[in-house]
Amino acid sequence: MDKTVQTQFGANAASYASSPVHAKGASLARLVELVAPQPDWQVLDVATAAGHTAFAFAPHVEWVTAVDITPEMLTVAVEEAAKRKIENITLQLGNAEALPFEDDIFHLVTCRIAPHHFNDIDQFLREAARVLRPNGMLAIVDNVVPGSYRRGKKARRQRQSAAARAAGEYVNAFEKLRDPSHHRCLAVWEWETAVKQANFAVISTETIPKTMNFHRWAARMNVSPADTIRLQAMLLQSPAPVAAFLTPQVSSDRIEFFLTEAILISRKIEGRDRG
């Protein structure tokens, strides 16, 4: 993404509107590449926030409609769209779990780094299936927690083990202490199961690790000093399966760790009624 565009973010933009993780994350370019959007497509971006994903797809498609539940974020997105002179976009307030659109109209539904805030991911997936045309594509990017995404018996044993589940819960608790609006990150296998249940066929799954600077990560959510110490303890004293996932690294001037983003592309299965 164009660096000069990023510096244009107004002073009133929310801190993550200019956050490199959200604006420039490797997953955004990779997402567009994997989806291969077509010029005649109608696209819906769910929980668009500052609009980064919607803006990335707009030049490649006919029209992007973007919804978010937060008026303040949408105001930032409207201003940003005007600044970038993106004209094939509509922004409106809407809830991922009750989308304000008729059935079967979009070629693509995207949702990036947002589902972990949703109360009911299954309901969001049902809504995405409803508004997508037959064979329409669903592209999800979100942080994931530990849990194997390999197929086969060994993977099944691994994911069902109490240790794997506990590690996932630990990472979710870690995220929730930092951000109370964090609801739950799924493991990759949980995503695959959820989209299949919502009448999608999985096309591809990829994961991308991203390095986080611990103190900047905490500061972005205005975590109190006391909670920052708690988070640091959770990170540095995490049990082995969690440490293997977060891989905390302490150097003289900083603490770093890894979070993992998954990109899940799936397709709405044709010819089966909803409900």
């Binding site: 919804v67 008026p71 409207v78 409106q92 307030l93 809407g94």
Partner: peptide
């Protein structure tokens, strides 16, 4: 409002 349809239930 301000050109943004507020489609929240």
């Amino acid at each position: 409002r301000d050109g943004i349809p507020v489609m929240l239930i």
